Simulated scan of single mutants.
Amino acid sequence: MTLRFNDVTQHYGRNQVLHGVNFELGQGVIGLLGPNGAGKSTLMRTMATVMPPRGGCVEINGTPVTDERIARQARSQIGYLPQEFGYDPGMRVIDFVEYAAWLRGISGSRLQQVTEKALETVDLTEKTGVRMSKLSGGQRRRAGIAWAIVGDPSIIILDEPTVGLDPEQRIHFRSILKTIRNATVVLSTHLTDDVEAVCDRVLVLNAGKITYDGGVPELAARGHAGLPGETALERAYMDLLPRAERSA
C-alpha cells in the first residue's frame, strides 16, 4: 500500500494551511514532526480522506481519490486516530473497537477475533466490558489505538497517540509500532524520542510546507552541539524551525 500526495493544498476558509505538499509513503513507520499550527492535523485528516484536498491530488495505492465513492473504499484500509476522537460514553470498550472493525468491512466470526486481538495488543482485555466513560485518560487513549489498528489496516494514521500515556505505556506503545511492518504507519508527535525509537523516516512540517523528508539518522546527524536541544535529533529538528518557533 502506498500513500502519495501530489502538490496538495488545503484551506480552512480563506486561510491556506497546506502549500503544495508532495511525498510518497510506503511500508514502515513515518514520523511527522512540526510545531503547533504547522498544519499536522490538517495533513493527517487529508491523508485519511476526511478532508478532500482543495488543490492537487491524494493517491492511495496508485488510485487518485477523486470522489466520495473512492474515498469510502480507501477508508476500509485506513485506521485513523485523531488527537481528539469521539465516542459514545455508554458504549463498552469491546463494542467501540468492534464497531471500527465493522466499518472496515469485517464481519462474521472474524469480527470478534480481530477485536479481541486489538484489545490484547493494547492491554485492555480486562476492560472489554467497561463503558468508555469509565476509562482513565490513558486507557481511553489505548482504546483509540485499538480502534486504529483493529483488522490490520494497510494505512495507520496516529495523531499524537501518546498524549495521556505514562512512560511505561509509551514504551509499550513503541513496542506495538515495532510489530507493524506490513503497513504504512504515520505517527504525528511532538516527542523526538518517540521518532528516534521507532521511525524509519521522518517528515518535518512547518507553516504548511515539508522542510525535511528523509531518514531519522540523517536528520540527527545535522544536530551539531551548538544548537538548542537535549539530543542530536532534537537539535536538528529545532534548527529546521524559524527562530520565532524555537523561542516560543
Rank of each mutant, 00 (worst) to 15 (best):
F96S: 04
F96N: 03
V97W: 03
V97F: 06
E98A: 15
E98L: 08
E98C: 11
E98K: 14
E98G: 15
E98P: 03
Y99P: 03
Y99T: 11
A101Q: 10
W102Y: 13
W102A: 14
W102S: 11
W102R: 11
L103A: 14
L103E: 07
L103N: 11
L103K: 11
R104T: 01
R104F: 02
R104P: 05
R104I: 01
R104M: 01
G105V: 08
G105Y: 06
G105C: 02
G105L: 01
G105D: 05
G105T: 00
I106K: 11
S107A: 14
S107K: 14
G108Q: 00
S109G: 05
S109E: 14
R110I: 06
L111S: 00
Q112C: 05
Q113P: 02
V114M: 00
V114R: 02
V114P: 07
T115E: 00
K117M: 13
K117G: 06
A118G: 01
A118R: 00
A118L: 00
L119E: 00
L119C: 05
E120A: 15
T121A: 07
T121I: 03
T121M: 09
T121L: 05
D123N: 09
D123Y: 01
D123V: 02
D123E: 05
L124V: 04
L124D: 03
T125K: 10
E126T: 13
E126P: 06
E126V: 13
E126H: 15
K127Y: 13
K127G: 03
K127M: 12
K127L: 15
K127Q: 12
K127C: 12
T128V: 15
G129M: 11
V130K: 13
V130Q: 13
V130E: 14
V130C: 12
R131A: 12
R131C: 04
M132V: 10
M132A: 12
M132Q: 07
M132E: 05
S133H: 08
S136N: 07
S136K: 08
G137H: 06
G137L: 07
G137T: 02
G138M: 02
G138S: 04
G138I: 05
Q139D: 05
Q139G: 08
Q139R: 05
Q139Y: 03
R140Y: 07
R140E: 01
R141S: 07
R141Q: 15
R141K: 13
R141F: 01
R141C: 02
R142H: 11
R142A: 09
A143W: 08
A143Y: 10
A143I: 08
A143P: 11
G144K: 09
G144V: 00
I145R: 04
A146N: 12
W147T: 15
W147V: 15
A148W: 11
A148D: 10
I149A: 09
I149W: 02
I149P: 07
V150Q: 12
G151E: 08
G151V: 10
D152H: 14
D152Y: 13
D152R: 12
D152C: 14
